[in-house]
Design a binder for these strands. Structure first.
Lengths: 172, 172
DNA sequence: CCTATTGCAGATAAAAAATATCCACGATAA
DNA sequence: TTATCGTGGATATTTTTTATCTGCAATAGG
């Protein structure tokens, strides 16, 4: 079981965007530089976040990304599912009916018990992720993290964020 | 997030081995045929289970695999960790200190809050898997599954299991 | 209107991992 | 002695992940 690196990048970027002012945006290139990531590849992930309506994007100069809704209503699960996809980690291939033991298809209408157990565990995983809000991550970072690192991060955001003419994101 | 196909194979094989009599064994080739899997590749996974002391192997003709301990003391977590490895799905690359925001290393002694949240969720996942015993899987299969499929599976085991001269596995 | 900057989509390439096969070896039951 | 089995290593094949590049549309600012 393995999560792609994109997940870490996506969460850090979202947490960073949580501290931009109002309706300002931050360019993807700045986010990439902030974490030493490949810009072209990070854009792929930011795009997935945009498609999932976790981020909003503004084109043009002075454009960039911002959160599509307040950090209180974005969970780690939202981000993980957006980047990794919504399919469960365990995919039942129904190998129980792939050998010579196979019987009539009517014998396999009930879902495989193994699959059920694996999916139940994954629900527990997702439930735990759903309990963590992006605002929790940011608050923890501000409270528990080193003040110097926090200050440096804020300064970076301050330096790269860009105010917008257009309307701020609707608080649905 | 994705689990390899080996996990499904390993669980099914372990469940099958749970119904061989006493100290008898079942050859890997028979298990592979049972589920229509590539024999040479399945052996890799059976090997991982053996290394993890979930299975025992007996060489020579009339040899094969059997459970290393009763199915009541084998959990899905044991099997998943044996096949997928014990490392967590989320690996923190500490990208927070890979950009220009980076400060002195002393600012990063505390573990990353994102990492902590992801690992906590994974503990929930593993805890859920640890609650399911192989004996539960087998019992569920016998009770809930189609009787025809169960009978066919038992017949297959009956046909391929081989009694042993050597001592039965120690019940540690 | 013009230009520079930005996000977006798609094609493509490079690297890594999962999947699969094969062979030589030691063990052992018959 | 022989045939069957698991083990370990080497290797090939396929898929996934990671990464880059190019052309395009949108738009702020002059």
């Amino acid at each position: 079981m393995k999560l792609g690196e994109g997940v870490e990048a996506a969460i850090h970027c979202a947490a960073t965007l949580a501290s931009v002012d109002g309706n300002s945006t931050m360019p993807g290139a700045a986010l990439a530089k902030c974490f030493g990531l490949s810009p072209s590849y990070l854009l792929k992930h930011l795009n997935q976040l945009t498609a999932a309506r976790i981020l909003e994007s503004v084109p043009g100069p002075a454009g960039g990304y911002r959160l599509a809704r307040p950090a209180e209503r974005i969970t780690l699960l939202d981000i993980v599912l957006a980047v990794e996809g919504r399919e469960p980690a365990f995919r039942c291939g129904e190998i129980r009916q792939r050998g010579p033991v196979k019987i009539d298809a009517s014998a396999y209408v009930k879902p495989c018990g193994i699959n059920a157990a694996m999916l139940k565990a994954e629900r527990a995983y997702r439930a735990a992720l759903a309990e963590v809000k992006l605002s929790d991550i940011v608050a923890d970072y501000a409270a528990e993290g080193d003040p110097r690192a926090f200050a440096a991060s804020c300064a970076f955001v301050e330096r790269h964020q860009r105010p917008q003419k257009s309307a701020p994101p609707k608080q649905i």
